[in-house]
Design a binder for these strands. Structure first.
Lengths: 266, 266
DNA sequence: GACCCGCATC
DNA sequence: GATGCGGGTC
């Protein structure tokens, strides 16, 4: 028996908006710890890891670990039927092949329940080791989204370079080149507007903008984004979900080629 | 000679927006009583009845009864040329095969007139008997529209069930099922936000969501919608038009089939 | 289905 | 002035 009551239902709506374009089907795993998901994108290049800790739910009952395979597109369709202020409850009986989403309007005048069929999905759950990163950049999520969108109109890949001074996003395409430098800036009024660079050693890595732009769909979930970089490791793009957990996107860097061959294929 | 001056011209614009997708051609009937229309939708399944009473017009002159056949798409194109604050005057000479729409801007700085050809349309004007309904639901029109839209992302038909407690909208489709319950609620601050259920006996009827979603195009005309249901009778979905009349949509229920065959074809 | 723009609301 | 919602376009 599973029953998770999330007062801020819009969080779950946003979570689905941010991953449904990347992943078609995925298992949601419920345990005493929380509600989580780990999945590769459809082309098996990027990885999404979501965690919503049990403490973030108003009510969290999970009698035993449960893995529920869902079609994220269908799940998203159902969640779109919830109002942004609705309370969302996720229910499943043990052994059932369906999950129920219940939406309560703030006034309790409208109560909706949506039942969705579950699917069998075999997914290898990767253990993702905690790693030391050469550099960790924290910056406003909207700014990062804007940069990725802007650069993708020029080129297909972005080179992210971190130095003590800040972080540089560069691209190159048929029509020209672009470099956007964000200087470290901690003296801003509001902490969520700060750009903070923690650097152990300089690093410069290349990524496909197509995936970066997918990741930035999670921008509504958090004011800030954290980008963790090491040479030879996948970048981690993390959006914290207030009081509950995070959504993290992992993407392997492209192998750097010659300077004048900056558009290698994946 | 016909001359109808409607100060709130946006009403007429909204009326056309709400029926032009349902009905291609229709006769507008003018009499001393008012300006009215009754027409079946193009697939002959739903019926629209519009009434704009003469008292709602600033000036209403209709020397003798007149039936004017119009292509609603063309009429809508012309009305789109009127500003939302414009005063609209409808003019026709006896025996003429055209109608003229005149638009006056609020400041009188712009006066436009659009002449449209009339068409011969033979339409049986159905007498619609006043009926006793098993249940009448009044609810915010935007909420009803939202429910119809949401459910249509899951299934093709909606079952509307009224009990003393409230009204339930249900559907079923390939990806799952949905039930939305709206409880009776008269204690709300604003009367237009209330949900009121008058029930003589419980009723449960099935309708094609495609038509319901067409009807809800009339939502801008009124804050509330009234849904009148009886078994074996067409449902009436009514939007009152302030100070002037109403627009009503009639739709026959689908014949209920077995529980496990809930998606019959029209 | 995703993206962009305009309108309405707070 | 900023944010959220809805409609239209690609």
């Amino acid at each position: 028996m599973l029953e998770l009551r999330l007062v801020q239902g819009s969080l779950l709506k946003k979570v689905l908006e941010s991953i449904k374009d990347l992943v078609n089907d995925a298992n949601f795993d419920c345990s005493a710890t929380g509600f989580s998901l780990q999945a590769m994108d459809s082309s098996h290049v990027a990885l999404v890891a979501l965690l919503l800790r049990s403490e973030g739910f108003e009510h969290y009952r999970c009698d035993r670990n449960l893995s529920m395979g869902m079609n994220l597109n269908n799940m998203s369709k159902m969640l779109k039927c919830a109002g942004n202020d609705d309370i969302i409850t996720i229910k499943a009986d043990d052994g059932s092949d369906t999950v129920t989403f219940m939406f309560e309007s703030p006034t309790q005048d409208k109560i909706a329940d949506f039942e969705m069929k579950l699917m069998d999905i075999d997914s290898e759950h990767l253990g993702i080791p905690e790693a030391e990163y050469h550099a960790i950049v924290r910056m406003p999520s909207a700014e990062f989204a804007r940069i990725c969108k802007d650069l993708s109109s020029i080129g297909d890949t972005v080179v992210i370079s971190v130095t003590k001074e800040g972080v540089k996003f560069s691209t190159r395409g048929d029509i020209g080149t672009a470099n956007i430098v964000c200087r470290q800036n901690t003296t801003v009024d509001k902490p969520e507007e700060a750009t903070i660079v923690e650097m152990n050693e300089p690093v410069s890595l290349t990524f496909a903008l197509r995936y970066m732009n997918s990741f930035t769909k999670a921008t509504p979930l958090s004011n800030t984004v954290t980008i963790s970089l090491s040479s030879e490791l996948p970048v981690v793009v993390e959006y914290k979900i207030a009081e509950m957990g995070y959504i993290r996107f992992y993407l392997a860097p492209k192998i750097e080629e010659d300077e004048d061959e900056t558009k290698p294929q994946a």
